[in-house]
Design a binder for these strands. Structure first.
Length: 354
DNA sequence: AACTCGGGGCA
DNA sequence: TGCCCAGAGTT
């Protein structure tokens, strides 16, 4: 495997991208970048990273941030529990560790939002600790090059890949080794249309020789989507509109939305207009009739959201939203919304965006 | 072990 | 459309 490693490092030296978290060893910055990059492409995460560290340049500033401001910075990035865990962990580091980021794997691994991958990434990159990372890139590169057919989404398979990665690790420079493996998977050994023509490792690649580059790595399960129907009540008058905060164990926790009626099936329009929740917005003869928006379809990994917005323009918003939050429309852009709702807002609420 | 958490990019 | 992305937490 020395051939593999030498060729990989050579490739990395020539082809690595110039990314901001590569020019620092500040564990805080490494940590933030790793959390943002969980299940997120570099191209998508990069602008969020830049803005995030500008807003929160160190762990103390982050620990002092308000929840809403933090979520606003994360708006649109998805997997919002990452932001919550980041916040909680920043407080722990700021208080219990006096702002000094722990440097051993076990302690780092015990922090909220940091699993096996992220702990290994932080301690290897920031502190040079001999820990091997296993992420989607590593699964792909190792399964293809070595012809490992164990599924990557079962405990047994994960254990196998972890062992192989640890055996392969260059203990002289674990951070560089880990990043080289991942960068190679991201740029050359890609999920589809891998660059085998220009690959420096092709001569030893099991998948290439056996024409298995389309079938490796192996996954045992496949995802299935369920469809949910969301009907949002946009109750407003000239100055104000009603929103509420999402709680409970569901998507978009701690983001805001308009008062919601959810169904497992599409609602008939007449039925919709007679919905009890619409009565919360007392419609009287001085108000305009409800307007029902087009259907917004929002694809997520495990579900498809089909949403409509029922907009009621009141002459004067009554005090009948006990669990809602009454805000000035001019402030609506300071709250974090799911992308689906943000899209609606941008088209239907004039004013300064961000 | 199986589910669930988002959003965007790609063929 | 289905799959994937510098995965982690919950049940």
């Amino acid at each position: 495997m020395e051939y593999f490693k030498e060729a990989l490092y050579q490739w990395y030296h020539c082809h690595k991208r110039d990314l901001p978290w590569r020019s620092t060893r500040d564990p805080y910055l490494i940590w933030v970048s790793e959390i943002i990059l969980q299940q997120t492409r570099v191209d998508q995460g990069l602008p969020y990273y830049e803005r995030f560290i500008r807003q929160f340049p160190d762990v103390h500033v982050l620990s002092q941030a308000s929840d809403d401001h933090l979520m606003k910075q994360w708006e649109g990035l998805g997997y919002y529990s990452r932001a919550r865990h980041l916040h909680a962990t920043a407080k722990i580091i700021s208080e219990r560790y006096q702002g000094k980021f722990p440097s051993d794997y076990a302690t780092v691994r015990s922090l909220k939002g940091i699993g096996d991958y992220t702990a290994a990434a932080i301690v290897s990159i920031a502190f040079g600790a001999p820990c091997a990372v296993v992420d989607g890139n590593v699964y792909r590169v190792l399964s293809r090059f070595l012809g490992i057919k164990d599924p990557i989404d079962t405990p047994g398979g994960k254990k196998r890949f972890q062992q192989v990665a640890e055996e392969l690790l260059d203990r002289n420079n674990p951070g560089m080794h880990n990043q080289a493996l991942m960068e190679f998977g991201a740029l050359c050994c890609t999920p589809r249309n891998p660059g085998c023509q220009t690959c420096p490792l092709v001569s030893g690649c099991y998948a290439f020789q056996h024409k298995l580059k389309e079938t490796l790595p192996v996954k045992s399960k496949r995802i299935q989507r369920k469809i949910r129907y969301f009907y949002f009540l946009v109750a407003e008058d000239k100055e104000q509109v009603i929103i509420e905060k999402r709680t409970g164990s569901d998507i978009w926790k701690h983001l805001y939305q308009f008062p919601l009626l959810e169904q497992d099936y599409p609602a008939d329009e007449q039925l919709l207009l007679s919905m009890p929740f619409l009565n919360r917005s007392t419609v009287n003869h001085e108000d305009t009739l409800p307007e029902i928006s087009r259907e917004y379809i929002h694809q997520l990994t495990h579900q498809e959201i089909r949403a409509r917005f029922i907009r009621v323009k009141h002459r004067r918003l009554a005090d009948n939203f006990p669990d809602g939050i009454r805000i000035n429309k001019a402030e609506i852009h300071t709250f974090a919304f799911p992308v689906l709702i943000r899209n609606y807002i941008q088209k239907n609420f004039p004013g300064e965006h961000r």
